[in-house]
């Protein structure tokens, strides 16, 4: 898939995803070793975006499984199409029992869900299992077979093994501790807040109209906010939002009033806004 780590960075950058060295290295290894990639980090640093970018680079189909509390086998793996099975039974009146029974448990009546779709696909596939921490513990057990051997067992049909291994990305916000067994099967990548230089490049890329010096100041202010002890630290997504806001307001430089008025774009809690305003001396003048 990729020839080197630099190749990963360059090709991801073409799709508009600027990867830090850590991200590029881990993606390269995941492709090379054929292991799933578990991505953790705060909200809004581009975990889901990474999977999309990889799919675009590899020219692969993106299959997405969005996890939520209560997601189960029928939603994640496969389901029998009961309505169609009933139709088949009533249509085949006069058949012997054996014929009907064998018939209604065949491929035709199987509804593949994301995991099975990704395993069975012939073309290159990126499987994104989003917000794994939201799913219940039972779901993890289900993932183990898929992630270690890339196969799915359907009792009536037998085991379906991947002809072509999908590139698997799992994301997690660490809302719940994932089990050790699941972690052991994956390469682990923590995407934190980017370095100042990288973040400036991201802002320049996503908000092209923004002036160079203003972009620098924006990133520096966000960096200072992240060093504070706040309830919710501003993420890359917020930085970009803020840059867009400043652009829309037509601000050329940052000053007291602009920052005070737009702080709500960066910080989502009132306590945080007050605290940051105090630390940045916003009310001093």
């Amino acid at each position: 898939m990729f020839t080197s780590v630099d190749d990963v960075s360059a090709r991801l950058a073409e799709t508009g995803y600027l990867a830090s060295p850590a991200v590029a290295t881990t993606v390269f290894l995941a492709a090379r070793l054929g292991k799933p990639l578990l991505v953790e980090g705060p909200a809004g640093v581009g975990k889901t975006e990474l999977a999309k970018a990889v799919a675009e680079v590899a020219g692969a189909r993106l299959v997405r499984l969005q996890c939520y509390e209560g997601v189960d086998e029928a939603r994640a793996l496969y389901e029998w199409n009961h309505a169609k099975q009933l139709l088949r039974i009533s249509a085949g009146r006069g058949e012997s029992w054996d014929e009907t029974r064998d018939d209604i448990f065949s491929e035709e009546f199987l509804l593949p869900r994301p995991l099975l779709t990704a395993i069975r696909g012939e073309e290159p596939t990126v499987l994104l299992i989003d917000e794994t921490d939201k799913a219940d513990v039972e779901m993890e057990g289900l993932l183990l077979e898929v992630l270690s051997d890339f196969q799915v067992t359907v009792p009536e049909l037998g085991t379906v093994t991947a002809t072509r291994r999908p590139f698997v990305v799992l994301t997690s916000n660490a809302g719940r501790e994932l089990s050790e067994a699941l972690r052991r099967r994956c390469l682990f990548l923590h995407i934190g807040f980017p370095e100042e230089e990288l973040e400036r490049r991201i802002v320049r890329l996503k908000v092209p109209g923004l002036d160079e010096t203003l972009a620098t100041s924006v990133v520096r202010v966000v960096g200072a906010l992240r060093a504070m002890d706040l309830r919710k630290l501003p993420s890359v997504a917020e930085t970009i939002d803020w840059a867009r806001t400043l652009l829309a307001l037509g601000a050329d430089t940052l000053d007291e009033t602009v920052v005070r008025d737009t702080l709500g774009v960066l910080l989502k809690h009132q306590d945080d806004v007050l605290k940051a305003a105090a630390k940045l001396d916003l009310d001093a003048v």
Binding site: V5, P21, A22, T25, T26, F28, L29, A30, R32, L33, K35, E40, A174, E180, R183, R184, L187, F188, L189, H190
Partner: peptide, 29 residues
């Protein structure tokens, strides 16, 4: 896995090696 990562990445770039080993050996932040 870590050894395979070393093989794939080579020993020339220390930063890459560090990230590669971290990805294969660590499980939590």
């Amino acid at each position: 896995d870590a050894a395979r990562a070393v093989e794939a990445l080579g020993l020339a770039d220390r930063a890459l090696l560090r990230e590669g080993l971290a990805a294969t050996l660590l499980h939590t932040t």
